[in-house]
Design a protein around this nucleic acid. Structure first.
Lengths: 232, 232
DNA sequence: ACCGCTTTGTGCACGGGTTCACAAGCGCGT
DNA sequence: ACGCGCTTGTGAACCCGTGCACAAAGCGGT
C-alpha cells in the first residue's frame, strides 16, 4: 500500500470512504460479534464490544460510525444487524475463489486452515512445481502442477492468489498470477513483490514479527539492567 | 500495544528512542542488505535500497537516521556496517529461545520454518495437549506434552512463546506462558489475548488478512461497475 | 407526558508518521 | 587546493489516526 490514505470512492463523492485503519479492525469486530450471536446475545454496548475486541470504546464507535448510523442510543448495537452490515461492507456477502501456490510446510498448513472457508473464501486449487507432490490429496483437494496455473485461474475466475513458495520463486509466481487476472495477493514469501498499481498485496512475514518482538525484548532487558544499576 | 508512541528509553533521555513504524521496517532493510552483502555489494545509496525494500528514499533515510549517522554523503551506506548496526539495534546479536505451543497444521509448519533459526532464534520445544502426538519427531525436535510447559521454559530460559493452538485454548496457554516468565508472545490463534502491561503480543491472523483483501477486491469490482455504467 | 438514565455519534485537539525540499558534507577530478 | 556533483541528514508542513468530552437521542418508569 504505497500512498493511499483512505480507500477511494467509486466516482463522485457518494460514500465517505472508510479509513484503512478501520477496515483492518472490522474483521476483529466481526469475529467477536459472530461469537456473541452464537451465544444468543441480542445487543451489545460499545464498551463491551470494545473490551472484547481489545480497543477503546471511542475508537470502536468512530469505526462503526464510518459505515452508517446503526445502533440505538441508550441501548447499544443489534448484534445480528451489525454482523450483516460489517459483512456487507467488507464484501463478504460475495464469494471469492482462492488459489494457493507452493505446497511446502506452510502451504500444507494453509490448505488445511479452517479460517479460509468460513467467510466465503473457497480454495479451488493447490499448485506446486514439484512433480513428486502433484496428485497428492490435501484437505480434499488434489495438488496440481504449477503449469496449470493460468488454466485454473481462468476456469474458476480466481481473484485471490496466496503465495507460499520459497523466496526465489515468489516474484515469478506473482507475475504469472497477475498476468492471468488475479488482482489480490497474499504473500508469505520473504520478499517485496512488485506489482502493477491496481493489484493489492498483503504480506505476512513470520521472521519480521519475531524480530520486532526481539527488539522489544531487548529493550525490556536493557531497562531492567538500568534499574538494577540504579538500585545498586 | 495500547498507547505507546515510541519505545520508552531506559531512564533519563539518553537515546532518542526509535519510532515503532521504523522498527517494523528495519527487518525488511536487514533482509535486503543481507542479500546485497552476499552478492558482494559494498555500498548502497538510499535510492537503491529503498527501491528494493519497497519504500520511498526519504522514509528510508529518516528511518536509518534514527539509529545514528552511519552512511557517508555523496557515496551511500556501507552494507556490512549497516547490517551490523541494524542487527544490534534490533537485538539480534543476542540469542532468543522460543517455544511453540500447538502442533497442528500450523505449528507443524512453523517448526519446520527456516526463518526462525536464521536470525538468532532457537526453537527449544514443541508442545501439544494431544498425547497421541507427543514423542513425534519434527524438524529434529520431539513433541512434548503441554504439561511440561513450565519446566521447559525455566530450563531453557525461554523469552518468546508462539501460540498455534485452537482459539479456545489460546488464552489459557498464554496465561501459563506469562506466569512462567515469557515476556513476548506471537499469537496465531484468532482471539484477542489479554496480558499484563509488560508483556508484548503480536498477532498474525490469516483470516483477517484475507478479509482486508476482500474489501479492496469488492471496491475494485464496484469501481469497475461504475465505470461501465458511465461509459454505457 | 415528562424526566432522568444510559449510550451513541461526533467536533476538536493532540501526536505520530510521511513527504518535500534543501542545506550540509564528502569524494573525485582537475 | 579548489570547486563540482552526488548523496545524506533533517527542518518543516501536511495528513491520518487517536482519544477526550459533550451534545443528541432513545427508553423506561412514574
Amino acid at each position: 500500500m504505497p500512498e493511499r490514505g483512505r480507500t477511494v470512492e467509486g466516482r463522485q463523492g457518494r460514500r465517505p470512504g472508510i479509513p484503512d485503519a478501520t477496515v483492518a479492525r472490522l474483521p476483529v469486530y466481526l469475529r467477536v460479534l459472530s461469537g456473541l450471536a452464537e451465544s444468543g446475545v441480542a445487543t451489545v454496548s460499545s464498551e463491551v464490544l470494545a473490551g472484547s475486541a481489545g480497543v477503546g470504546p471511542a475508537k470502536l464507535r468512530k469505526d462503526l460510525s464510518h459505515l452508517g448510523s446503526y445502533g440505538t442510543r441508550g441501548v447499544g448495537y443489534d448484534v445480528d444487524f451489525l454482523v450483516y452490515q460489517i459483512s456487507r461492507v467488507l464484501g463478504l456477502t460475495q464469494h471469492y475463489s482462492v488459489v494457493i501456490v507452493g505446497v511446502g510446510n506452510l502451504g500444507h498448513a494453509l490448505a488445511g486452515y479452517g479460517g479460509f472457508s468460513t467467510r466465503g473464501f473457497r480454495v479451488v486449487a493447490l499448485l506446486d512445481v514439484d512433480h513428486a507432490r502433484t496428485g497428492e490429496q490435501i484437505a480434499g483437494l488434489a495438488v496440481r502442477h504449477v503449469d496449470e496455473l493460468e488454466a485454473v485461474i481462468e476456469e474458476h475466475d480466481v481473484q485471490i492468489g496466496v503465495i507460499a513458495t520459497p523466496a526465489v520463486a515468489a516474484q515469478d509466481v506473482c507475475d504469472r498470477l497477475v498476468a492471468a487476472g488475479v488482482t489480490s495477493v497474499l504473500n508469505f514469501a520473504p520478499v517485496v513483490l512488485s506489482v502493477p498499481e491496481e493489484v493489492d498485496v498483503r504480506k505476512v512475514d513470520l521472521s519480521i514479527e519475531l524480530q520486532i518482538l526481539a527488539f522489544h525484548e531487548q529493550r525490556k532487558a536493557l531497562s531492567a539492567l538500568a534499574n538494577d544499576e540504579a538500585t545498586a
